[in-house]
Design a protein around this nucleic acid. Structure first.
Length: 175
DNA sequence: CGTATTTGACCTGCGC
DNA sequence: GCGCAGGTCAAATACG
């Protein structure tokens, strides 16, 4: 298990009329402060993350050694701290060729759209058993960039959004 | 008119 | 073998 630090830019409004936001205030949100708190810390145990006690890692011991993590670095000021794991060989041919690693992080956000530099196109929505909230499936629409992600709201705290990336997540724009 | 989104259907894996 | 749940496809629709 390894931990990575990655800078993200939250583009919650996505600047569409679905999330109308004055241009000047939008710029203020993006560049200065976005109305969310990054509190993601999802532990992968092989192919399963230990999220049975979200509160413990959101505000508890997981960040107790670094409570400032929610306030420093990141998208113009915040840091993203998440866990990554490589998936083992799966029998499914279709997944085996694309799924290299899986990254998940949890974000306290009003919105679900995280603009990490890629263009995401939604290709599916599904109600999941353990959550009253639907899970959305996105695929990167950048040519040749085969990455998928799942976005769902936390079942305990609807204010939190859980984003799971599958595939190569080191977009050229990061470097 | 081209592109993105929605949404029901379909496919596959897994547990019983 | 069957049913359930998760994941994906694709036609229809909406939007710029």
């Amino acid at each position: 298990m390894c931990t990575m630090i990655l800078s993200f830019r939250i583009n919650g409004a996505k600047m569409t009329d679905k999330n109308p936001r004055p241009a000047d205030s939008a710029d203020n949100y993006v560049t200065n402060q976005w109305p969310l708190e990054l509190s993601e810390h999802l532990n992968f145990d092989d192919d399963q993350w230990l999220d049975d006690d979200p509160d413990s890692f959101v505000s508890g011991h997981a960040f107790s050694h670094n409570n400032q993590a929610n306030e420093v670095g990141g998208f113009g000021g915040s840091g993203t701290h998440f866990e990554e794991s490589s998936s083992r060989d799966v029998g499914n041919e279709r997944e085996k060729k694309e799924v290299r690693d899986r990254v998940a992080f949890k974000t306290k956000s009003e919105v679900e759209i995280l603009d990490d530099g890629s263009k995401w196109r939604k290709y599916g929505k599904k109600m999941v058993k353990n959550s009253p909230n639907p899970r959305n499936y996105y695929r990167c629409s950048v040519d040749g960039w085969q990455v998928k992600k799942r976005v769902e709201r936390d079942k305990d705290d609807p204010r939190f959004v859980i984003t799971t990336y599958e595939g190569i997540h080191t977009h050229p724009s990061y470097s």
